[in-house]
Structures are given as structure tokens and as C-alpha cells.
């Protein structure tokens, strides 16, 4: 086997990691497995598509950057997608989970989130049909990096963009009060209230951050793979596997978990073909739950 899977796996893993950050944060703060998270990815990707195409129609000459397949239009689209992710996450919380949290147990929340994710996907499919879409139909030339590894400029840029977002998230979580409040609340909600942190505000911030990152990873998936209404749903198993592998509540863990899942999937695809890609994440998930249920960086049982 050659090392190509490393490049593909890292690019995919970065996107899984971005999505898993939000999942691990909402999981540790709201304490339930949220199946809606995948839909933020898909809705984000389509928001990016609609905005970018709209801008290209308005200004056909905008063109693309150097070797990349896209230009300003998609960058603005990315920003719009993240806003859409924030809005969607806040709406979902306000109109569904906030009510249910007050009167129901975890299981009802999980089933409600499962149903809501199907509903959001159906709604998306209704608007955009189930046909795949692309930000750009240009075929990109892959550049050889040596050792038999070839990457497209888009893949490199996606990796860089993901790394940039990770730095931003790290700064938010460690250097700002909002970030510290989120960490504090996820560790010990009662003590956080006692220390003057408004739990409701933390919950909203967590949804917003998770929604924005998931939407961003959706746009990146759209750049490097393709855009389909089921893309978020298909990401659910990798996201859960990454979050649990990294340890629920751990942001570095989610990123590491994402990279590991991405590499394992790419390796699996190289060895066995693409048909069973989703099974790789599942096998890792089962293995982690059996061997180390708190994950690599998990805090407590």
C-alpha cells in the first residue's frame, strides 16, 4: 500500500474533527447524544452552495484564486454557512430541546434528536432534491508531494483552513471568558452556576459554536468530495466515533479522534474499496467502547 491514504485521510480527518468538536461539546454540556449535529453539516454545505452560486451569478468575473477551484464567492459562502449553522443550532435548541430538556429524560432527547435529524434532512431534500451538487465542476490536477503522495490544491487549502479554525477554537476555549465558562459548565454545571455562570447562556454559546464548526466542515466536505442531502447523516458515525475516541468533552480529543478516524477510513478504502467506508468508523467505535470507554483524553467514567 502507498502513502496516498495519509494525505486523503488527514484532509477527511480534519473535517471529521471540526464536526466532532461541536458534538463533543454539546454532548458534555447538554448530556445527550445529538443526532441533529450531522444536519448542521449538510445545511451548511448547501447554504455555502446557494450563496456562492448567487454571488457568481451577480458577478461572473469573480473567478477563482490561483490553483484553487473557488474564489471569494465560496469564502463568503463559507461565512454564510457558519451563520446558518449558528442559526439552525439555536433554533433547534429553542424550539425543541429547551422544552424537552425541562420535562424529559435523556433518552427522549436522543430519540427526538434522531427524529429531528431525519426531518431536517427530508426538508433539505425537498428543497434541493437528492441529486449531488458541486461548488465547482472543474477537475483539479493533483500535485505530487513525493513518496507517491498526490494532493489537490483544494485538499491542502481545506487542511490549512481547518487548522486555522482549530486555532481559533483553542483560543476561544482557553483565553476567553466564554470559553472558560463552557469548559467549567461541562465539567461541573452546579459549581458553574455557583460561580456566577449563567447556564442558559453557556448552552446557547455551545450550540452556536458547534453549529458554526459543523457548517464549516460541511463546506469543506463540499469542496473536496461532493454535496448531497445525506452528507451530514453519513458523517454521524465518524463524528460519534471521533468524539468518543477522543473522550467526551475533550476538544483536542475530538480533533485527534477525527484525524484517526479519517486516516483509518482512507486506509480501509485503499485496502478494501469504498463500499464499506462507514463500517470503519463503526468498528473503531465498538473497539473504543469495549477497551477504553472514556476515550483517549476522557476525564471521568
Amino acid at each position: 500500500m502507498n502513502l496516498q491514504f495519509v494525505a486523503d485521510g488527514l484532509a477527511m480527518g480534519a473535517m471529521i474533527g471540526l464536526g466532532a468538536i461541536g458534538l463533543t461539546l454539546t454532548y458534555s454540556i447538554l448530556r445527550f447524544a445529538n443526532f441533529v449535529h450531522g444536519e448542521f453539516i449538510a445545511w451548511g454545505a448547501y447554504t455555502g452552495l446557494v450563496v456562492a452560486n448567487g454571488l457568481i451569478v451577480l458577478s461572473p468575473k469573480s473567478g477563482s484564486f490561483g490553483p484553487f477551484s473557488f474564489g471569494w464567492a465560496l469564502l463568503i459562502g463559507l461565512f454564510a454557512a457558519m451563520l446558518c449553522g449558528v442559526a439552525l443550532a439555536l433554533l433547534v435548541d429553542k424550539f425543541a430541546f429547551k422544552q424537552l430538556r425541562m420535562q424529559s429524560n435523556t433518552i427522549v432527547l436522543v430519540i427526538a434528536s434522531f427524529g429531528l435529524s431525519l426531518a431536517l434532512r427530508s426538508l433539505l431534500e425537498f428543497f434541493v432534491t437528492s441529486q449531488p451538487a458541486y461548488y465547482s465542476r472543474d477537475i483539479q490536477m493533483a500535485v505530487p508531494l513525493g513518496l507517491g503522495v498526490r494532493v489537490t490544491p483544494d485538499q491542502l487549502l481545506v487542511l490549512a483552513l481547518a487548522a486555522g479554525l482549530l486555532v481559533v477554537v483553542h483560543v476561544i476555549l482557553t483565553r476567553t471568558h466564554a470559553g472558560r465558562a463552557m469548559r467549567a459548565f461541562s465539567e461541573n454545571p452546579l459549581l458553574a452556576e455557583v460561580a456566577g455562570i449563567d447556564g442558559a447562556a453557556v448552552v446557547r454559546m455551545t450550540w452556536a459554536l458547534g453549529g458554526a464548526l459543523a457548517a464549516a466542515s460541511g463546506v469543506m466536505l463540499g469542496i473536496t468530495v461532493q454535496i448531497r442531502p445525506t452528507m451530514g447523516f453519513d458523517m454521524l458515525l465518524p463524528l460519534f466515533a471521533a468524539a468518543i475516541l477522543g473522550g467526551i468533552g475533550s476538544v483536542p480529543g475530538a480533533v485527534m479522534g477525527g484525524l484517526i478516524i479519517g486516516l483509518a477510513e482512507a486506509g480501509g478504502v485503499q485496502l478494501f474499496g469504498g463500499s464499506y467506508r462507514a463500517a470503519v468508523a463503526f468498528l473503531i467505535l465498538i473497539a473504543v467502547l469495549l477497551v477504553r470507554p472514556n476515550g483517549l483524553f476522557g476525564r471521568r467514567p
Binding site: 435523556t106 433518552i107 468518543i244 463500517a279
Partner: peptide, 17 residues
């Protein structure tokens, strides 16, 4: 319970695959 939910979800996905 919620890990059981995620794994059984995964089982169904794999059977579908």
C-alpha cells in the same frame, strides 16, 4: 444507554451497507 443508542445505530448502518 446513549452509547447503546449510538452503537445500535451503527449496527443498522452496517447492515444497510
Amino acid at each position: 444507554a446513549d452509547y447503546l443508542a449510538i452503537t445500535t445505530f451503527g449496527v443498522a448502518v452496517v447492515i444497510q451497507l
